[in-house]
Simulated assay, not measured.
Amino acid sequence: MNRRLGISIYPEHSTVERDKAYIKRAAECGFERVFTCLLSAQKPIDVIREEFSETIGFARNLEMDVILDIAPAVFSGLGISYDDLSFFAELGASGIRLDLGFDGLRESQFTYNQYDLDIEINMSNNTNYVNNIFSHNPKETKLLGCHNFYPQRFTGLDFDFFIACSQRFKELGLRTAAFVSSDAATIGPWDINDGLCTLEEHRELPITTQAKHLWATNLIDDVIIGNAYASDDELAALGALNRYVLEFEVEVEAGVSAVERTIMFDEPHIRRGDISSYMIRSTPSRTKYKAEQFPVRPVESHTCGDVMIGNDNFGKYKGELQLILKTMPIDERKNLVARVVDYERFLIPYIGAWNTLAFKEKTK
């Protein structure tokens, strides 16, 4: 399933023009969807219709999907019948997200709505909720899953719980989504905003690392920035991510040669299938660059996150790239060329046999 990026907007706490400018910047960076919220909407229905329609229409014209977050209370608050989703279609939405569910049958019936709206359901509960919906024979192509975000510090999902919840949805073949949090953003649906991420362990991480982690699990398709407004730099950095290859941010060592840089950053890397518990090996470069020189440089460590390349003393293994997995004795036949940044080393175990990986130099 293709992987997408999304942003969130909160019209109740901003202006139409500011939201449209943000949507435009995100679209230019390759974002494909917008999350917006009716849960906190307090304005009269006519004002909501006017403001949301303009913003949603602007996003749809940029070929972005727009999902409206709602709950049963929204239906009653706006005087909308459960049997008539025309209001959301009139706003121009691609679909609705049910923050709180119904009885399974109603969700299934929603998927057959005449307006072809997607029905996105809450993934952050490890119950048989989604299985109950499937027992009522929904139109599966119109059913999506999306985790919650958590504005209050220390209330985000535990990782193991997140995995269990997400697996339920992936095993059913549904498109899935989760939220990451921007350091620059200050707006959310409520007055508490300690960041708007799904996983608690993501709250202090760079936004790109959060996204890499979600995609590395192979359980999340869409990564959405939960708070608004992310900075231009954050939007650009997320847009530039490889969505299908785990790319580690590294700090390059002094004295690295041009050919070592070429191997590290320009050559494809695939972990060999005969895996070692001590290192990830990428071997094609030792053949391609066997005629090159790799002068020996002193090395002081072989620890997790070290990126090594075999030097002139390494015989047939000269030019081979290795990513160290755990501390091992120093081998002077290998040059240290870079180190994975501390906050991304936890991602290294996601590289299994025959997995592709890449490296990107840290710029700040």
Rank of each mutant, 00 (worst) to 15 (best):
S40H: 14
I220R: 04
V250I: 15
D233G: 09
F31S: 06
D312L: 10
V47K: 15
K20N: 07
R281S: 06
N61Y: 03
E234L: 10
V252T: 08
V223G: 01
S76T: 12
R261G: 06
R272H: 08
L357I: 11
I163N: 02
E90K: 15
L157R: 10
A291G: 05
F314Q: 03
V245I: 15
E32F: 03
N193R: 04
P151V: 05
H269N: 08
A291K: 15
C37I: 04
S277G: 10
I280W: 02
R286N: 06
T303A: 12
K170T: 12
E12C: 02
D266S: 15
D65G: 15
F110W: 12
L68E: 00
A89C: 04
Q293H: 15
R261W: 01
V16N: 10
V66C: 13
I187M: 10
V130L: 02
A338W: 05
E63K: 15
L85K: 05
V180E: 00
G57N: 11
F87A: 04
I96A: 07
N218I: 01
F102Q: 02
C146W: 01
P11L: 10
S86A: 11
G95M: 07
L157D: 06
H269T: 07
D160Q: 14
A254Y: 07
M1V: 11
R203Y: 10
L117R: 04
A216H: 09
D103H: 12
K290A: 13
R153F: 08
I348N: 02
G101C: 12
K142F: 13
N137A: 11
E54W: 01
